[in-house]
Write a protein that binds this DNA or RNA. Structure first.
Lengths: 257, 257
DNA sequence: AATATAATTCCATATAGTGGAACTTCAGGG
DNA sequence: CCCTGAAGTTCCACTATATGGAATTATATT
């Protein structure tokens, strides 16, 4: 006979308490902060840890906000905010290679370009923000999908894949092999599989505790971009990816369970 | 008889579904995405909205991630990431006024400085990062506390307040009046209430949907900083605060219920 | 080693979540 | 304007699930 919110209020109270304490809290501290009975608090913390909303630090005695919460927030983040955060990094890449640099983001089960920086000399844009990046024909989508949960990947593999050029690799086995290669090498390449004559590289952005949700890449005509060694381009992309992961959108303070 | 996580798994599934859909989801879409029965999904959504983890858009038919989740992110955010995000803004302020600019953050029930930029000419630092900002004697803490929930404010008011200088306003009534004044004017001032001869201004950062968690301020010797009109300094601070609120750490896509 | 404090486990109880079905609202087409 | 199907909302008997005090084990602290 009052406002009905159910059990969520209590979980929310626990999360609030943890969020308010930078260094994390022990069970007893949570009890004091929330007024919950010890047994109850213990169970709630266990459940929260079970779903990944909080994580245990040290000998698991200190609880902090967990990776899954961070993932939620990144996914829900307005594209404009993300775009603002990478801009400087893309500028740097473009200045160095005189080719287009971009950031791709996983949204639901699609990868789309969210920010892009073209060199002044370029007139044609290969990755307008918002462009859908197909899994089987773009480096950025491969860089991202190579690090997603198996279940989600299987769902993607089951979908039909269009052929864009005669180089497009639309077979399932090919795609599996490509993803595997990405996991080993740490980056992805596509050469003419989406647009003829267009080469692209991409590196995954490993967010501390939140997996991979973004990829940073470069695109350009094979003739021009191809003159740089893959090594060189990839090294620069990896550097940018690391910087982005540590940047303004970076992790809540977290750690491994 | 398997892994026990309780009801949280279902809430998490709903949140995941919402996070994966940039534009929000309707009840039926949530049902399809999660496989939950209609009635159940409806109730879960209601509870989530009740605690503010999701918000209704349009005629409340479309659900998106809500403000409270954003607040969690900000509170849990590593200070270093926040500091990186404001740096350019602080640089701008310092360059313009040749005085120290800083960002203060609410952590639990304390306000602390998290980032600071001194002019090259300055040798003494009034707001080293990490410094505690007492509610009754600093502009930044007042700027933040003026916009917190009544309950939390009352708790703060109940605490004892030290006298730092003979100008320190430690009375409860004085503090209440100060907070009220901040709410009306939109900024806070402190003149010698913490350190003698030191003047400071601060403006709250209104985060879209997440209330006020930060304040941006300037400090300096009254003699020097005082030569600028309050109007002028405050206008610049407000501009910076707005830019910060819209910046990289900005809101999840949200709106009013 | 002794002692206090925190973490964890247990379990009888009842509270709170469940989901199918009934009912209402809404949008669009005839 | 009314009909019709789909989406949204409410209801309620059923039972699975959360509850929290007390007992137990682990961990500091002196």
């Amino acid at each position: 006979m009052g406002s009905e919110t159910g059990i969520l209020t209590r979980y929310a109270a626990v999360l609030d308490a943890l969020a308010a304490a930078p260094g994390g809290l022990t069970l007893i501290e949570v009890v004091r902060a929330t007024g919950l009975p010890r047994g109850t608090a213990h169970r709630l913390l266990g459940a929260l840890r079970g779903v990944g909303y909080i994580a245990g630090r040290d000998g698991r005695k200190v609880y902090v906000l967990g990776p899954r919460l961070l993932r939620l927030l990144h996914l829900g983040q307005a594209p404009a905010a993300v775009a603002a955060a990478v801009r400087p990094l893309l500028d740097g890449l473009t200045a160095r290679f005189k080719e287009t640099a971009f950031l791709a983001k996983l949204t639901g089960r699609e990868v789309r370009s969210v920010a892009m920086r073209m060199p002044d000399s370029e007139s044609q844009s290969y990755v307008q923000p918002g462009r859908l990046m197909p899994v089987h024909a773009t480096a950025s989508a491969k860089a991202i999908w190579a690090y997603q949960e198996d279940g989600a990947v299987e769902a993607i593999l089951a979908e039909p894949r269009a052929r864009f050029t005669d180089k497009t690799r639309s077979g399932e086995a090919e795609l599996r092999a490509d993803l595997e290669r990405v996991r080993h090498s740490g980056f992805a390449v596509c050469d003419g599989e989406l647009d003829p004559g267009v080469l692209s590289y991409a590196c995954p952005v490993h967010l501390d505790g939140a997996g991979v949700l973004y990829a940073i890449g470069m695109v350009g005509l094979s003739q021009r971009l191809g003159r740089f060694g893959a090594q060189e381009v990839v090294a620069a992309l990896q550097e940018a990816a690391e910087a982005f992961a540590k940047g303004p959108l970076a992790a809540v303070e977290s750690d491994r369970p």
